[in-house]
Design a protein around this nucleic acid. Structure first.
Lengths: 188, 188
DNA sequence: GTCTATAATCGGATAGAC
DNA sequence: GTCTATCCGATTATAGAC
């Protein structure tokens, strides 16, 4: 049988997309290779033509999820305030397709091995850079770090609470607070 | 063989202590019943005389870890500022015996079933109440929520980064920021 | 490159002796 | 109440056909 040159890469991307979705939604351990491959429209046997282990998939999937989330929130946010508002929105909390791995996997990653933590750290630093580069943003390092913690921490916490009223209040409060620091030292 | 009336309860507490330690350190999935029982000085077979399932143990262990952490930080903190400083300290980050499950398991819990999330929510509300009751603390709800997010989110994030310099900076920045809000509306 | 079938392992839960 | 031995389901990874 003959395969298009692009076919393998397409399959690989399908697997990664499915994995990014499932891992951020259910965590590493609650997702089997079967689940990922089924979601990608294939069966288990094909997996190892693309990745050497579930761990390798995990790392790449987290990266992909991070890029996808970043891009999504960037595209829909002209200002730093928009970015914060969108990130800490109920849409993000409930979204079926966009979930930031920094929030979905904060504590998960802490229990994984160093390589996963390194990947996470890399994504986190990209997140910081993004926050910092928004033109009208207060970009002292401490202000940026605080925003990041309020965004990631607020969203992570909201996801773990059964009291959805309280979860929403957290999102709202963090959103408002994260917008304040940038006014100090900004131009208007 | 005859057993002291207190023996069973002692064993139970040993198991819970070991479980609280292991689960907050490694997460639910990376810890087997074997591990817990070995740490408690027993073998697997004895487990089911105390708990009906690993899940049941998880819930109780989280509660125990929460109470232990709360008590530890309360005891060593006269003021709200002390509490924040101690919670966001490097000692807490590196501690072998005291780790707050709210930070260690934020995103883990999000992937678990409702009952675990309910337990987590309960602990979180206790945490809020504690923050609120500190006499000199600013206790508007929003201020308390922000402190909680900075503490839990900051510690969770610090645990997941390989860049320990950055992790420390996060702890320090969150610590300072969490102390600010309470000055508004306080008495001095 | 993807499939089906299977090997190998690990971990939760149970049974029965003491 | 705790032990050892065992069952059993789930899941990662591999083998070999197409």
């Amino acid at each position: 049988m003959v395969w298009k040159a692009s076919h393998k890469e397409e399959s690989r991307q399908k697997i990664l997309t499915a994995a990014a979705d499932l891992f951020t939604r259910k965590g590493f351990n609650r997702v089997g290779i079967d689940d990922v491959m089924a979601a990608a429209g294939m069966t288990r046997g094909a997996f190892y033509a693309h990745f050497s282990s579930k761990f390798e998939l995990y790392e790449e999937a987290i990266l992909k999820a991070g890029r996808a989330a970043m891009q999504h929130f960037e595209e829909n946010s002209a200002s730093s305030e928009d970015l914060i508002k969108n990130y800490l929105s109920e849409e993000h909390l409930l979204s079926d397709d966009i979930r930031c791995p920094l929030a979905c996997l904060v504590s998960d990653v802490a229990h994984d091995d160093v390589r996963v933590k390194q990947t996470y750290t890399k994504i986190f630093k990209g997140f910081l850079k993004n926050l910092q580069e928004k033109p009208e943003s207060g970009n002292e390092e401490s202000a940026v770090l605080l925003k990041a913690v309020l965004m990631i921490g607020g969203m992570a916490l909201a996801r773990s609470l059964t009291d959805k009223q309280l979860a929403k209040k957290i999102l709202k409060t963090c959103s408002e607070a994260a917008m304040v620091p940038e006014r100090e030292g900004s131009n208007y």
